[in-house]
């Protein structure tokens, strides 16, 4: 069982020691990773995915339950503790959705029945339906993203879940985060989106490739997050209307209680 992971700070892009020397994330916690583009958010997520042992640019070290993970734990997909939804959404595999998911289920030691569940879940997250017979390489950005979210949620059912920018591909991000987070997992979300950032328990602030500080989400922020959710809901419905070729007459603001 994974109770906690510890990130031991390394060095930023300029070779200076990171201000945050140690960060601990416990089971059931959702951590955000925020910062400008190029500040090292994806690298931090990458370090955790690989359970780095001072062997990446940052020289960070990742401990699981306070101990160095074994080589086998770090590399064997059947034992893998980490599921990652990365920003790399270009499928290179020349095969159908069904073949791809079956192969991945086999790699992870998951049951082949998972395949249908993944496609079903993916179709709740995106507007354009995905079929098992579709070629992977022709999927749109939103479809690929939805499929990867569902794949991570169902096939790569690992105790640590890393999510790199959920907001970019026009999928229902709240539903997606809910599907991914699951019960009792350790979750890290890289985001530029205040709606997602304020949904987390704490957030790591990145700058110049280094962890600058860890900010706890305040009660006030949690309340604000509820309001932001409503605004987001409004934006989503407007987006659907525009997508469907409708003309917008007015925006209903009084429900937002701002």
């Amino acid at each position: 069982m994974i109770e906690e992971i510890t990130i031991i700070g390394g060095f930023d892009k300029l070779g200076n020691p990171e201000p945050v020397k140690k960060a601990m994330i416990k089971k059931g916690e959702i951590f955000g990773v925020v910062g400008p583009t190029g500040s090292g958010k994806s690298s931090l997520i990458g370090d955790i995915e690989q359970l780095s042992q001072e062997d990446t640019f940052s020289k960070r070290k990742i401990l699981v339950n306070g101990k160095t993970p074994s080589y086998e734990d770090r590399t064997n997909p059947r034992k893998k503790m980490v599921a990652q939804l990365s920003q790399n959404m270009n499928f290179l595999a020349d095969m159908t959705v069904g073949e791809f998911l079956s192969l991945h289920a086999k790699c992870r030691g998951a049951h082949s029945k998972c395949v249908n569940a993944v496609v079903e879940l993916a179709n709740t997250l995106t507007g354009e339906p995905i079929k098992k017979e579709h070629d992977l390489t022709i999927l749109s950005g939103g479809q690929s993203r939805a499929l990867m979210v569902a794949d991570v949620a169902i096939i790569s059912n690992s105790p640590i879940v890393l999510i790199d920018e959920l907001e970019n591909a026009g999928i229902r991000k709240h539903d997606a985060l809910e599907a991914l987070a699951g019960h009792g997992k350790i979750v890290m979300v890289v985001t530029h989106d205040p709606v997602l950032a304020l949904m987390t328990d704490k957030r790591i602030v990145m700058k110049n490739g280094g962890m600058q500080s860890v900010v706890g989400t305040t009660e006030k922020e949690k309340a604000l997050s509820q309001k932001l959710n409503k605004i987001d809901g409004l934006m989503l419905s407007l987006r659907d209307q525009v997508r469907n070729g409708e003309v917008i007459d007015d925006i209903e603001l009084k429900n937002l209680e701002l």
Partner: peptide
């Protein structure tokens, strides 16, 4: 690092199909 985790895992499995005894 240039492909998704799922594709990376499939790639690894394919290598083991060809050479089950190698260390990856």
């Amino acid at each position: 690092d240039m492909i998704s985790q799922a594709e990376r895992e499939i790639f690894r499995e394919r290598i083991l199909e060809v050479n089950p005894n190698c260390k990856i």
